[in-house]
Simulated scan of single mutants.
Amino acid sequence: MKKVFIMALFALSTLTINAQVETPQASPAAKVDQVVGLTNVKIDYSRPGAKGRTVYGDLVPYGKNWRTGANANTVISFDEDIKVNGKDLKKGKYALYTTPKADSWDVIFYTATDNWGLPEKWDESKVALRTTVKPETLNKSVESFTISINSLTNDSATLDLAWERTTVSVPFTVPTNEIAMNSIEKALAGPTSRDYFSAAQYYYQSNNDLNKALTWINSAVEMTPTGADTPFWYLRLKSLIQAKLGDKKGAIATAKSSLNAAVKAGNADYEKMNKDSIAEWSK
């Protein structure tokens, strides 16, 4: 009986240790994922509630830096260089801080994003951009702190912060035209040598149409700039395709060119592979 009691007590203690109590967070986590033109904007933040409190000037003091949310850093990222309120901001990830005031807000993009709230020691050198905007009064109270991307066009949007009866809107522009024009020019210029190489490699590896693969790798080789050496890996792939098509003589000649280029580049792996293939195809 005593043994059974001890085993039951052990099982109960194990359950107690392994149990995890789940309760709602006071400031729930939130994500914003928005495409502006051709630029991806992502925001991770936490949403504190007003809960009947006076927010600005009390819970969030005027004139002091604020974490702009709750818990860990509010983090915003852009995958292209942008302009915030007319100022340049490099693509990347930033902690978003603000300094609320009664008649203006400073909005700060800070390069260190691993703080819990504000940094223990503020480092001005980590301020990637600081801009000032005017707050506006809302006609309806916002209970939960909210960050959103609004006023979307192909080239611009606003980063909006709203809580209680205050909202601030930070305009930013994105390089949509530049990205689109680069894409158009690249497409109209036709495939690159790398595109031809990748297509030929896929066809070779997947046992697809080898004649088409040979045409593509020849195009890649022909696109080598005048005076430059044809990449030895291009020639290696061509020799393999030729061998697979039964053209051992052509494969050996191409492999020798690949071997010479590999030796010149100091690539021992390709040097060995070409020597081994030449020996095999010469039998």
Rank of each mutant, 00 (worst) to 15 (best):
S13R: 08
T14Q: 15
T16R: 14
A19W: 14
Q20D: 05
S27V: 04
A29W: 06
T39L: 07
K42R: 11
I43R: 03
D44I: 15
P48F: 00
K51T: 02
K51Y: 09
P61N: 13
G63C: 08
K64M: 12
W66L: 11
N71M: 12
T74S: 11
V75W: 14
V84T: 05
G86L: 04
D88I: 02
D88E: 11
L89S: 07
K91N: 06
Y94H: 08
A95K: 03
T99I: 15
K101E: 14
K101Q: 14
D103L: 01
W105H: 09
W105S: 06
V107M: 04
P119R: 10
P119K: 10
K126G: 10
K126T: 10
L129S: 00
T137W: 03
N139F: 01
S141N: 11
E143A: 03
F145V: 00
T146Y: 00
S151Y: 11
T153Y: 07
N154L: 12
S169F: 09
V170K: 01
T173A: 09
T173W: 05
V174R: 10
P175F: 11
T176K: 13
E178L: 13
I184T: 13
A189Y: 02
P191W: 08
T192S: 15
F197P: 03
Q201E: 15
Y204I: 02
S206M: 13
K212D: 04
A213Q: 04
A220R: 10
P225H: 06
D229W: 03
D229T: 13
T230F: 07
Y234P: 03
L237C: 08
K238A: 05
S239L: 05
I241H: 06
Q242I: 00
Q242N: 01
A243S: 13
A243N: 06
K248Y: 03
G250L: 03
T254F: 00
T254A: 02
L259Q: 15
N260I: 01
N260F: 02
N260Y: 03
A261T: 06
G266A: 08
Y270G: 02
Y270L: 08
K272C: 01
N274G: 00
S277V: 01
S277M: 15
I278C: 04
A279C: 00
